[in-house]
Design a protein around this nucleic acid. Structure first.
Lengths: 200, 200
DNA sequence: CTAAAACATTGACTTGAGTCAAAAAATGAA
DNA sequence: TTCATTTTTTGACTCAAGTCAATGTTTTAG
């Protein structure tokens, strides 16, 4: 069914391999099966990998660049829920789980190189590679913890506190991305962010 | 190791059994193993099942009554993240996953009857009952979807919209619980909630 | 290299929702 | 039932953060 040898595990793939191996122990054969389901692709800056209303058929692993997951309210303002940089997965998980059309978009924030696996193949892996169930469980655990901490931060912190915490915990977001993206992530207006920066 | 027959599956337990069976298929022996790890307990209204700073050693299944998961900000105001009524699980999941001390509290909102399983036993089940890994995965999926929808609602809805959605999607919360609890769940002040109600 | 577009800053004004305080209503224990 | 506690409502005031608008600054495409 799958015929992939060690020597095929080149370049970009190594990042994905070491990511998987850091989470679960798999035989070489299982690893080959897993990798055979992942396909590489490139995305230009601003390109949408998933648009609103589609159901989320893919989960992405970022090898180079950065993608974000965001959604848009009635007034047309966007809120970013998550940035995935190198060596991180990005999935519109709600849609991926429920199979309902996504309220979220996935977009390349920089020119990016990613791997993706389709929803169908992902769930097939759950059946045929026992350890994949554990991989997914760990992924869900991390995603849950991230989201819940984020939820709590929105409930109890004001704009300044959120910005300070971001500088403290994820300085890469501030260093590498535009004000607009940072404001979207903190869910404040660009003007407010600009004012915070001058206050600090 | 376990010696539990069908006839032991009485009363309260039936709710738990049918809940588990609705999520995964298990043999009677596996089911008996699972149930042997769950212990019943009662809690009076307002009693804390988990307090801040403890690490979350237990996950609870509500048979009767209602429990809530909440946390408290620096000014002493509480935000409720989740209400579990009959036939629902309640876990301070972040702490349960990370094994760090909980920033969340779990509290009985009404006189309640619950089952609990300890963290240690829960993870033991993951090892010895293969389907339990799937049960946990499904639990995490549901919890993730809930939390993320909640996060999005806080980001894009104002007080009135949040209240309307609650009436629409979880009227039981409004019908059965005090204003104070509802306000805590919507993360608005009691006064604001009171004003919303007169506007509707 | 240059023009156009996108992004960032600053000021003036507005507003949703919070706080504080006091009164009214509901709940509950003796 | 009754008195005390808790909960809910209403009014007056405050404030964090948003909007709109104008002006700089940076990025990008040709």
């Amino acid at each position: 069914m799958v015929n992939l040898t060690e020597t095929d595990f080149n370049g970009m793939e190594e990042l994905l391999i070491s990511y998987i191996k850091s989470k679960i122990s798999v035989t070489n054969e299982e690893l080959a099966t897993i990798l055979s389901y992942f396909k590489p692709m490139k995305a230009k800056k601003n390109e949408l990998l998933l648009t609103h209303g589609q159901s989320s058929q893919r989960t992405f692993f970022v090898v180079k660049g950065c993608v974000r997951i965001f959604f848009i309210n009635e007034e047309g303002q966007d809120s970013t829920r998550y940035f995935a940089f190198e060596n991180q997965f990005a999935t519109a998980l709600v849609s991926f789980i429920t199979s309902e059309p996504s309220e979220e978009f996935i977009q390349a924030v920089e020119d990016s190189e990613v791997y993706y696996i389709t929803h169908k193949n992902f769930y097939q892996l759950l059946e045929i590679v026992p350890q994949w169930e554990k991989f997914y469980r760990i992924y869900l655990e991390i995603a849950y913890v991230n989201n819940t901490k984020r939820l709590m931060s929105f409930l109890i912190q004001d704009a300044l506190e959120k910005y300070r915490q971001l500088l403290d915990e994820s300085p890469i977001i501030v260093r590498r991305l535009s004000n607009k993206m940072v404001a979207s992530y903190l869910n404040i207006s660009q003007e407010t962010l600009s004012r915070l920066k001058s206050k600090l």
